[in-house]
Design a protein around this nucleic acid. Structure first.
Lengths: 338, 338
DNA sequence: CTGAAAGCGCTTACAG
DNA sequence: CTGAAAGCGCTTACAG
């Protein structure tokens, strides 16, 4: 069965395509009688406008693009969730691409989306990416653009973020409130902004509480893995520096720490308290249950789409759009590990 | 800056749009000289074909739709990964929608994708869904269609699946090989095919080993959650039926079982061995590390797109397409819990 | 209230 | 080797 077209409806009813189009779009200048005949037939034929033609005519695709480092990650899954849901509510569909943390791929994907003429792009940068030409091209082509999570501060677009520094301070303060005196930090990679900010938050919290900062208590991950957590936990025990609390860059690594402590019979939190970051699923089901920092991932997705849509609408109406920075609240989830 | 068009190139060079189009598509009947002039200018203007126009003209969107119950799920994330990667390699983009296990939403989403005129649809059904009208409409409109994981056997489409029955048999056999004599099964919901098949595999494995099947050793989840695992573990201990092995429908629930056993100091696997299903991330980082059945999620995604593309190509060339059932191998991952 | 016409930007069968 | 023309299916400014 072929798809019904306006032409078919028009021919069947013996009226013009113009009138059929207007009737279906509920224009005021069509008689009630004509309108009814058209609508009835359209329903009967199960007519839906050919979106290819509508796209070409209106120069809109009602589709947005989303580029993230990887889907297989609890935090990103949550964001994707929020974006898809909110987009759908507003009549938009979402094309998802993954950069796999490769700058090369990311560039190709931006080109793909621009070529596809999506109405807007939401993006979390790969670790390598920064103020690069492909990002600039998005802005230069005036394609509505929102960054979230891993952002480049240099790019003047809307951003949806959390305050990593403050969240890290809260986490370390939580350890201090629990009585920790000598707190280590297992930090992330050198480059990413959130890794830097969490480290700075750690330092600030110590400072605020009059605890001297000791660079010897900072352990830098070479990769964000369970195994890194195990390795640093081992090192911490073997070095025997009297550490009684650890703030870990993210839950996956923290879980590695807990696994090692479990194996060695080290009491958590009595001997050493541990707090992670991100509230992955795993942190809730591990023993002891991991205390962590909650990032509102779903909400980040919703906000990201919402501000993107604002920009889409503004540009369509030729109104000025001022990029907005949306900072979402994080919270400490205290469980059994602190 | 406006986007360059064929017309613009044609006017600039003083030749026809037709020739420009042919030159860019490397038709043989264009002189080398003209071709070079066109290509040079196209590169200079950073020309890319307007995909809206190409779509309308070719009646192809080079986009496929994917509907899954939820993204925030390690297994589905893996599949999504495989589909996106393989699609991109072949010049296709992927629109992702989530049914959130709601039949109502799923129906709406199928309509959205049909309306969007995607070139094909890949789908894992929601738990409520079956041989319903919206699925039939996909087939009736001759839209290339592939089911994976949660499928309806009644729908004559290509399918990418694992042999749940065999995988479950292997898991239970593994418990038996480890010396378990009285094996319980925490099964999934009533409806989904894979829940049924895993249960049947459990029965068959017992039968094959001459162990009488006891319905009293089967516990049926009302929801697939950590908490259900905890609750059933508690029940199993309190009932004290002498169970020494448990085959659990999926890792998340199995982790709940382990959490309860950990808390009560029950030795795993010495007192009771536990095996899960799906190889979630969490199973590798829990203590004791959970033995499980590995499902090749990424590969399922790759296969699903590959067979979809076969159908797309066949239909385009008006060749007959015979739906294919692709069954992927699973494997037992023996860790510390068995 | 209705409709002829232009146009979105491309592709391709056909003529020369 | 080149190009005029039709057409994909819609929307909308304009005329009547």
């Amino acid at each position: 069965m072929r798809e019904a077209t306006l032409k078919e409806i028009a021919n069947t009813l013996g009226i013009s395509i113009t009138t059929v189009s207007k009737a279906l779009k509920n224009y005021p200048d069509v008689s009630a009688k004509t309108k009814k005949a058209v609508v009835d037939l359209a329903v009967k034929l199960n007519y839906t406008p050919n979106s290819f033609a509508v796209n070409l005519r209106t120069q809109e695709s009602k589709t947005i693009g989303l580029i993230i480092p990887e889907v297989v990650h609890h935090f990103f899954s949550g964001v994707v969730n929020g974006i898809i849901d909110e987009a759908e509510k507003n009549g938009y569909l979402v094309i998802i691409l993954q950069s796999n943390e490769s700058l090369e791929l990311e560039k190709k994907q931006v080109a793909l989306l621009i070529n596809k003429r999506v109405d807007g792009i939401i993006m979390s940068l790969s670790n390598e990416s920064n103020n690069d030409a492909h990002i600039k091209e998005i802005l230069q082509k005036e394609i509505p653009f929102v960054q979230f999570d891993k952002i480049s501060k240099l790019i003047p677009s809307s951003k949806v973020i959390i305050n990593d520094q403050k969240a890290a301070m809260d986490a370390v303060q939580h350890l201090i409130d629990r009585g920790c005196k000598k707190i280590a930090h297992i930090r992330g990679l050198e480059n990413p902004q959130n890794s830097i900010d969490r480290f700075l938050g750690y330092k600030k919290a110590l400072e605020k509480n009059g605890i001297p900062f000791d660079p010897g208590l900072v352990y830098a991950c070479k990769s964000i893995t369970f195994e890194q957590g195990v390795a640093f936990a081992k090192q911490i025990i073997e070095e025997d520096k009297g550490i009684d609390g650890i703030f870990v860059i993210t839950d996956l690594v923290a879980v590695g720490v807990l696994a090692y402590f479990n194996e060695k019979g080290i009491q958590v939190p009595n001997q050493i308290a541990v707090i992670g970051f991100s509230n992955w699923l795993v942190s809730r089901v591990i023993t002891p249950k991991l205390s962590t920092v909650d990032q509102p991932s779903y909400e980040m997705g919703v906000e990201a789409f919402t501000v993107l849509l604002e920009e889409i609408v503004c540009r369509k109406e030729n109104r000025e759009f001022k990029p907005r920075i949306i900072e979402l609240e994080t919270g400490i989830i205290a469980r059994e590990s602190t």
